[in-house]
């Protein structure tokens, strides 16, 4: 218990470190806000605001209006149907081969949770290892970050080729097992949604792709933890595990929370990788659509512009709610103090 007490104080002051000076500054500013300063504020914010409104708010409004129509790409505002599109999302007719929005929502939630559970501990472990002074540390750090730098499309194509029925993985298995007939497993073709091997293969590819970001963030966080703390703990006789558990991880928690937030948002937006690995038709058959692939396959491929927009609106609202809840209950500790 003594550890936590001694640790919490530097944490609090470190967290307040950057913000600690700001109240004074704002007070000074309040005293004399000149026209020049106002012009500066306007001059700097207006261009960004214009871009933000034009490319974020206007499209959201546009999608909202389109979602009330049953339009086509060349005539998005024909056949006003009111909230019918939304009713269809929440109350779908079951048809052979037709994907369901709620399946996509479930897939997204599971991908989000599994990404946190798989990547978090793994990344933390690797980061702790790489923060120690080992040989070729820089090389390892670089290699681990490489998949994250690769574009999603390239990664998708590479893994689609490897996992293809006539791809490298099956060739390797054929060689190792010495099977008479070449192995032709369709790794990405399993039916059965999130329970199928294909889903877990997807999770594997996602982990390979994104764990680099988590590791780099954690390494950056670790480098910000003063060495004096661990040294002091060692003098007090704390074991390596105790130091990690009671000093390093608590001090790393703002970074972990920020990473989890990024990971969550990324999981909700997941599109490219899934689209390329499976293709829209098989996603429907396998029940592996994400909300974004569902939206595009309905709105763009099937030309159901209105329905696709309705899905986009629901997706936006859901992401917004998750983001706000996360900020209110979890991130506020890190960024919400002054707000």
């Amino acid at each position: 218990m003594t550890h936590t007490v001694t640790v919490d104080k530097p944490l609090a002051s470190a967290a307040a470190g950057a913000g600690g000076l700001s109240p004074m500054r704002t007070e000074q500013r309040k005293k004399k806000v000149s026209w020049r300063e106002r012009l500066e504020v306007i001059g700097f914010t207006v261009p960004a605001l214009v871009v933000y409104v034009a490319f974020v708010f206007v499209p959201i409004g546009y999608a909202l209006i389109m979602s009330l129509f049953d339009g086509s790409p060349v005539a998005p505002f024909q056949n006003f149907v009111g909230v019918d599109n939304f009713t269809r999302i929440f109350n779908p007719t079951q048809m052979l081969g037709q994907p369901f929005f709620w399946d996509a929502v479930r897939n997204n939630l599971l991908i989000a949770v599994m990404s946190l559970l798989l990547q978090g501990p793994l990344a933390l472990g690797v980061a702790l290892l790489l923060s120690r002074k080992i040989k070729f540390r820089q090389v390892f750090r670089l290699l681990i970050f490489v998949p994250y730098v690769l574009s999603e499309v390239i990664t998708g194509v590479i893994f689609a080729q490897i996992l293809n029925p006539t791809g490298a993985l099956n060739a390797l298995i054929t060689d190792i097992t010495g099977a008479d007939a070449a192995v032709r497993t369709a790794w990405l073709g399993y039916q059965g949604g999130v329970g199928s091997p294909s889903f877990w293969i997807l999770m594997g590819v996602l982990t390979w792709k994104y764990i680099g970001l988590a590791i780099i963030l954690f390494l950056a966080g670790l480098s910000g933890i003063p060495e004096e703390l661990t040294e002091a703990a060692m003098v007090d006789g704390a074991s390596w595990w105790q130091i990690q558990r009671k000093i390093t991880i608590p001090l790393l928690s703002p970074t972990i929370r920020m990473w989890a937030f990024l990971s969550l948002i990324g999981s909700f937006q997941l599109f490219d990788m899934v689209w390329i690995l499976f293709g829209p038709t098989q996603l429907s058959r396998q029940g592996l659509h994400t909300m974004a692939t569902y939206m595009v396959s309905q709105g763009m491929n099937a030309n159901r512009v209105g329905y696709g927009s309705a899905v986009a609106v629901v997706l936006f609202v859901m992401t917004l709610i998750v983001a706000l809840l996360y900020q209110k209950f979890i991130l506020h500790r890190d960024i919400g103090k002054d707000a």
Partner: peptide
């Protein structure tokens, strides 16, 4: 047309 084609192909693939 595309509005029928996508669900049709999805259904046939499942079939």
């Amino acid at each position: 047309g595309p509005a029928i084609a996508t669900p049709m192909n999805d259904a046939i693939t499942a079939f």
